[in-house]
């Protein structure tokens, strides 16, 4: 099963990495890019938190979400530049 569609990461890969000792959403994100795709993790972080809970016993509700990294929607370089020019 694919858990992160944006970065095409499977459940088996996520479980393998958790078993290697990466026990938080941030740590797994650094290995597999889960949460770094177009949707910025909206599609996958909750699923991965559940897998971490299953593998380590750390409750999903107690897991820290990766720091949100703007922009929340992808925007073209040219548009961001124009925003600067108008300031």
């Amino acid at each position: 099963m694919v858990v992160c569609r944006c970065e095409e990461v499977s459940e088996a890969e996520v479980r393998r990495v958790i078993r290697m000792g990466y026990h938080s959403l941030e740590a797994v994100k650094r290995v597999l890019r889960t949460g770094m795709g177009h949707c910025q993790g909206r599609g996958c972080l909750r699923l991965i938190a559940r897998l971490i809970q299953e593998e380590t016993g750390i409750p999903a509700s107690e897991q820290k979400l990766p720091r949100p990294r703007p922009p929340l929607k992808p925007l073209p370089l040219g548009l961001l530049r124009d925003y600067r020019d108008e300031e």
């Binding site: 770094m36 910025q40 990294r69 703007p70 922009p71 992808p74 073209p76 370089l77 961001l80």
Partner: peptide, 11 residues
């Protein structure tokens, strides 16, 4: 020519 390329994330 990169003007149309979208930014995903900053940190």
């Amino acid at each position: 020519r990169l003007a149309g390329v979208k930014v995903l994330r900053q940190w």
